[in-house]
Each structure stands twice: as C-alpha cells, then as structure tokens.
Design a protein around this nucleic acid. Structure first.
Length: 502
RNA sequence: GAGCAUGUAGUCAAAUGGACAAAAGGCGCCAGAUUGCAGAUCUGGAGGUGCGGGUUCGAUUCCUGCCAUGCUCUCCA
C-alpha cells in the first residue's frame, strides 16, 4: 500500500532526460550511492554529493516512501595512477596497517557527515567485508562468458559483452565503444595481459608487496575497483533496484563498468534511475591540489585559507549548496558564502518568529483571503520544486517569499485576520518540515543551551527597556554595544526587542 | 587531441519557444517607510540571458560555428 501522493520527476542519466519516477514496489525505494574510498580526508566535493543524496533520501521519506539507502565504504581495490591500491599506498606512506588507514578515514568521514547533519544510510557495507560476494560475482561473470583469466587475474571482456548486449556499454556516459577502442589502439603495446585495452580487471592477482590480499579460485589477490558496488548493491537491494547515485565523475568508467558487471553476472539491469551530482568549483576553476586551487571542509569552517576572508559554519556551507540544483556545477566564492551566511541566518530567524506566532482564532471570520490563497500557492510551489528533480533552489526561493509574509505579520503590516488559523498552522508545519526534515539544517545559534542564557538575556533586556522608557540612550546603547561585543545582536522592533547570537 | 556538459545583472543562482504587473530567490547597491540612533523588517528602484549565424510569426530557451569554463577519456590497474 502506497501512501505517496507526490509524482516525482527525476533526471535519469541513463536516458539523458527527466522522467517520472516509478518505484519497483509502490511505496518503497531502494537507493544505492557510491561512497568514499577511505584513503585520505574526505574531499569537499564528496560532501556536496553526499549532502545532495541525503536530501533526496530525506525528501523521499518525507513524502511517505520507505527507503532503503545503501552507501558503501570502499576500502580495497581502488588503484592509484601508479597501479597501487589506494589503501595499501596510504598504509605504506603512513606506516600503518591498511585497516588502520581505512578505520581512520572512515571515522573522519562519518564525523564530517555528522557535521553536515546528514542521516546515516540504512546500510553502509564495506568492500573488504564482501570479498566472498565479489568472488561469486566474478564466477558468475565467467560462467556467462564475459570474464577471462590471465595469470591469476580475471578481466571483463567488454567487446564480447557489447556484441551480445548491443548499445549497453557506453550508454550511461554517452560513449561509443568503437571510439574507445580506436582511442586506445595506440596503447595496444602496453595493454599487458588484457585482450583489449577497454577490458577491466574484476580480480587482480597480488604482486609482491601487496598487503591486502585474499584467496580466490584464480590467485591470492584482490577484487577490481568497480566490483564492490555491483556485488553490494545486488546483495542489499536486489539484482534490479530503483535509484543509483554518485558523483558525476564516476559515470565513466566506474558506473559504466558496474552496469556491465551486473548485466554480465545475472543478465539484469541494476538500477532503473541513475542520478549524478555535479562538481564543486572554487572561484570558477576546478579544485585541484596540484595547482593549489583547493580548500578542505575544515579550512572552510575555520577560515584558514587564502580563498576565504573568514570561516563559514557547516550549516552555512550546506545552505550554500541548497541554493543551487544538485545537477549544476556550483562555484564557491567568498562573496557567495557571505551571501549564504546572511540568507541562512535570515531564514532561521524567520522560522523562529513564525513558530512563536499564535493563530488568531478569536476574531477569525472563517473566510479565505487573498493572502491565504497566496500562501497556499507558495507552499504548493515549494513541493512542486522538490518534486521536479529535487530542486532545492526553487524550494528555498519559495520559503523566502513565504518568509516575507511572516515578517509582515510580525510587523503588523499585514493584519492577523488576513491569515486563517489553519493556514498559519500549515505554514508553521511546512517551514519546520523543509528546514529541518528535508534540508537537514539545524539552528547553530541555539545549540547546547539549558535556558540560562535565555533567562539572563530576558533580565538584561528588561533593564534596557526600562532605560529606554526613561530615554536613557546612554545606558541603552551601552548594553547593546556590550552585547554586540560578545556576539549577541539586539534588535528593537515594534513587537519589542529581539536578540540573536552569532 | 576526442566525447559530453555548462555560459543568465556586481556576485551565487532558478526557470522558460511568447503576452501579461514579471527572466525566481539570496547577497550587494540606491531610495522611501519604521527607529532616539543602529540593526532587523516592509515597500519601491537600478542592473542580466558569452559572441556570430540559422530555424520560427516570435529564441535566453531549439540547431549551428566560435570563444571560455568544467567533467571524462587519451598511460594504466
């Protein structure tokens, strides 16, 4: 039984267009997202990808889906440009056990995901914990004739796969196999033991010095990089599932090879919908360690970077990400972050004003005003934005428009009777839902306070109000300036005096 | 070198084959209201579809060339 009333449209990379989302089982969604390779600190770009999919996860749940969200940890098999396992290399460099490296960066990754207030996935499987499943998949692929062994390593026969499944390989990334073959023809001489340069390893025989190795029917070795996602998505979501996500840069070859492996092992397409989050830029350029155009999440938070004039809190960074659509590149600039900081604070304050409002039931005449209709229309627009490929930019813009009604009410520029009690209640519910449940923001300003500060502030502001009543501006301003010095902003309004921290 | 994307005010960014009041929204800027002042808030305003060609009654949107930027591939597991 499905209770989901929303029709979601999402951009399917497989088709290159938006289409209506139809889950395999009504009311349920299976979603797999390629997680990090834990051999170094998490990259800011990864934070965007996982934040984007966290919001997709949250939204699907919000509208009533039961979602199983699987996001893996890759801790073996992903090789560096020099052909060394990334985990092993990390271990060698730091003189640690590979599992120590994996543990260190997995913990760091989890910490960062918590800092960004993302929900943990339903299942977070590790590649090293699924070696038997991966070996089984290699066997299945070989049985179906798409794998061949060379000196203890096993390769996936891309050309044969393409001949028997025309149009599949390259479809996701918009590549033509013949072009790939032609391009790599020059490299024929150095293709090693592969029959064809486009073939890829699904099992690698260990070389001397490799430390992360397992027994297999072919050799002591380790699984190929792309295999773990195929094996683990199959294990936890089934041979065919709804959504597969990841960063845009994984489209080729990683996701293309994943599809080939799944089809090659069981003859079935893995995911119906492929979603790809786009890249983060820094000052209009790609982030790159080699030319110094890069910033880590921690540097962004602390402000210890030449690219920012100050630190920006995790929620500000997250809010900044929400201002763009997940499928667009997003350019990080100091100015844009400052804008996001103000926008975020404003939205949170608007919400806190809204949540304190009482509906005016006493003098409500039961009619529906133009304001009511506008508010309801804007709420629908916010949902319509999210329904249309999770467009957080539209949802956010709509919340801002709704916010101006909140302030008009608070300033008595709009009469309370203009908003029906039930409309106000709905507005309050929707604001909380979008900000906290869907976007996963949190109010950093009121964290960890037991009410002492509230009490103190009340006392101080009472004293100041008394001074102001006497037109004692000296005392009034001394209090305001003193509080400003410790980071508390005092704002006088029609309804009395407000204060905010930060 | 190849494939695929993207290019929207000062800035980040959304949307759209048209007309409407009107190409969202955030930040910045200007003016007014409010205020003891400041802030916040409200109202109003200035400012934009990279360059050229094509399709169309009409193009920011579709096609195409150029330029710029990005991703992937070009060596390999």
């Amino acid at each position: 039984m499905s209770t989901v009333e929303h029709t979601i449209k999402l951009y399917n990379s497989l088709k290159g267009q938006k289409e209506e989302f139809k889950p395999l089982h009504p009311g349920y969604v299976g979603m797999y997202v390629c997680g990090p390779t834990v051999y170094s600190d998490v990259h800011l770009g990864n934070c965007r990808t996982f934040t984007s999919f966290d919001i997709i996860y949250r939204y699907l749940m919000h509208i009533g889906y039961k979602v199983r969200y699987v996001r893996n940890i890759t801790d073996v098999g992903h090789l560096t440009d020099e052909g060394e396992d990334r985990m092993s290399k990390g271990a060698r460099v730091a003189q640690l056990e590979p599992m120590e490296v994996a543990q260190k960066y997995t913990v760091g990754f989890h910490d960062m995901m918590r800092i960004f207030n993302t929900l943990p996935p339903s299942i977070e499987p590790r590649a090293t914990g699924h070696i038997p499943e991966q070996i089984k998949m290699v066997q299945d692929i070989m049985e179906r004739g798409y794998g061949y062994e060379r000196n203890g390593s096993v390769y996936f026969n891309v050309r044969k796969f393409d001949q028997e499944n025309p149009g599949v390989y390259g479809n996701l990334s918009g590549r033509v196999l013949d072009d790939l073959l032609a391009e790599s023809r020059e490299g024929l001489k150095s293709q090693g033991e592969k029959d064809n340069p486009v073939d890829f390893a699904i099992w690698m025989k260990a070389r001397s010095g490799d430390i992360m190795v397992w027994e297999s029917p072919w050799s002591v070795g380790f699984p190929g990089w792309h295999l773990e996602c195929s094996a683990m998505s199959t294990k936890y979501l089934g041979q065919t599932f709804d959504i597969h996500g990841g960063g845009n840069d994984l489209k080729f070859p990683h996701h293309e090879n994943e599809i080939a492996q799944n089809l090659g092992s069981c003859g079935c397409t893995p995911a119906n919908y492929w979603l790809h989050a786009n890249m983060l830029l820094l000052n209009g350029k790609k982030m790159s360690k080699s030319d110094g155009n890069t910033i880590t999440p921690m540097e962004l938070f602390t402000g210890e970077s030449p690219f920012v004039t100050k630190g920006y809190s995790p929620m500000v960074v997250k809010f900044f990400m929400l201002m763009a659509h997940y499928r667009s590149t997003l350019d990080i600039t100091d100015e844009a972050l400052q804008a996001a900081e103000k926008g975020f604070r404003r939205l949170m304050e608007t919400n806190s004003i809204l949540q304190k409002m009482d509906p005016h039931t006493a003098d409500f005449d039961g009619s529906e005003s133009d304001t009511d209709r506008t508010i309801l229309r804007l709420i629908d627009e916010a949902y319509a934005g999210m329904d249309d490929d999770f467009n957080t930019a539209i949802a956010l813009a709509t919340l801002n428009e709704l916010g101006s009604y909140v302030h008009k009410l608070a300033n008595q520029q709009l009469d309370h009777t203009e908003v029906a009690p039930w409309v106000l209640e709905r507005l309050k519910t929707i604001f909380n839902a979008f900000i906290f449940d869907i976007f996963g923001l949190n109010d950093e300003a009121d964290g960890g306070d037991d009410g002492t500060v509230d009490g103190l502030m009340q006392l101080i502001l009472d004293i100041r109000a008394a001074a102001r009543a006497q037109k004692d501006w000296g005392t009034s301003d001394k209090i305001r300036d003193g509080l400003a010095a410790v980071g508390i902003a005092v704002k006088d309004g029609k309804e009395g005096t407000n204060w905010t921290k930060g």
